[in-house]
Design a protein around this nucleic acid. Sequence first.
DNA 1: GTAGGGTTAG
Length: 663
Amino acid sequence: MVFFCTHPYLPTPTFVPKPHNLHLRSLFCLQSPIEPSSSSPSPTHSITTNNYNHLIQSLCSQGNLTQAFKLLPREASPTQRTFESLILACTRHNATSYAPAIDRRLSAADGLHHDPFLSTKLIEMYSHFSALDDARNVFDRTPQKTIFVWNALLKAIVVVSNDGEEALSLFTDMGGKGVHFDSFSYSYVLKACLASSLHVSVVLRRVRQIHGHVLRVGFDSRVHAATTLVDSYAKIGRVACARRVFDKMPHRNVVSWSAMIACYAKNGRHLDALAIFRDMMRDSETAPNSVTMVSVLQACAGLSALSQGKLMHGYVLRRGFYATVSVVNALIAMYIKCGSLDAGRRVFATMIVPRNVVSWNSLISGYGVHGFGKEAIQVFEEMISVGISPSPVTFVSILGACSHGGLVEEGRRLFDSMLKEHNLIPQSEQYASLVDLLGRAGQLDEATKVIEGMNIEPGPTVWGSLLGACRIHGNIELAERACSHLFELEPWNAGNYILLADIYAAAKLWEEVSRVKKLLEARGLQKLVGCSWIEVKKNLYSFASVDELNPQIEQVHALLTELVKEVREMGYVPNTKVVLYDLEQKEKEKIVLGHSEKLALAFGIISSQKGEVIRITKNLRLCEDCHSLTKFISKYTKREILVRDVNRFHHFRDGMCSCMEYW
DNA sequence: GTAGGGTTAG
């Protein structure tokens, strides 16, 4: 037994049991008997050598690194296979402490010291340990740098340091030294381009350059390289470029189709995502898998296309994807975003796979956006009680739920628990949620104090929350302060200019309104056009604020005029403060009456049966006038109306809204 | 011997 307690680098003990000894074999718990290799030239030598090599390899595969490393000094000629086993076992078990032992033994090993195969494995191991310097050391001392060695370092730089610059500089170096890139090199370098925190235009330029390389060597026809290109363009929002690459691919597999669908879904092109999914279904060679379905469900959720979502749910069941947690999570989110909190809850309740934090977050956020703050907190507590640790996203969701429910104290308590009970350091996103919570509730001073007390630089989301609160409570001075930061941090975000102009307009400061509008124009920005849509008999109908193309538009306008006339008698007064023009009241009323949500609502009333819930989705926040008129219309028509705006759901029933004016 | 697509929030 002394043998097993010996340090690997101590002198060899005098007694060494024969490796093929049964006693030794049983101690090592080997599953198969070890026989000396019959092909070895010298029987005496080969028994020792091969058996130690085999033993070490077996121990590695069993994860018994301690014993494997104790045996290593006894092996006179460790083979490439033995070193590979040791390296892989260290990587698998995060055994960083054994890495120097491998390095030392390898430098003494004849013929293997500079072996490019083992260098590649070592670079991969060090990359796994995030030890980039060690990886580079191995790279530097390897004279015969095969493409595997280069690629391993390239990947290590991208994965470990996330440093696009350094990876690109290595890529350039490779080119300069005449290395022939393979399609792996292009995959890694494209990842490197995206990894940098540079401006999107710089990233685009680089992706285009790499695209040029790929085209010159003809790798655009290779499925992996082309798919990475599709994904790279997708991630920087260049949907058309992604599509061009996709269309030119001679062969597509499930990953390329999924990448293209995800590209559309992630960039808000939900209809296109569903359209290309249909094309994929027509392509008999490729069947969607669970990853495809996640993006497809996202697209249904983005559109609030409940009927389509239900069809996809059926498909998920038929294909057995119900056992994949990400698909089920996407299903929960889809139902919740399509306005059916109940269906989302049912999917959550009947999951056959273990729920992860994302499943819980989806449900918490669902309760939040539907205005059930207290229930969201209950779900949060249940999640903790079943042993799931909350993530940063959990806090964004739960604080959002508190904000929509006006639960200020509970929200503050939960924010404090983040660090104290869950060991999570609040970041800008969580601070933004807290500022939103306090700000909406009118505690603007408190919200400001929170920002001033932050120990990290407040990001645009934080100032954006404050600006939103200023709009609700009409605080011009604070709004200007928030904008001074926002115009610097995200000068391209038209929404901030519009919010400030809204605040000025509400205070009738028309000169200021026009100043902000000029600033917006000078920066070449445009207000996002309001758009609402509605699903009627499994079809989606969309309406823009200025919409004369809809065949039923005259009927819609006529109904709206009639409804307004009726509800005025019930107390409805048009609220025109959202109109950013200094016009006559009548003109302003005409403008707000043309808002897309109202058009979709009137269309919904015309095209649906009494008793049916009218479900509308809007791409912007619901304006005060639409909110007020919808309340009146729900009472007058005795209809239940569900509106999803960019922030949350509004359940209108009998003249009331579930949001209780928090939106 | 290495590689490409996905879930929650904002």
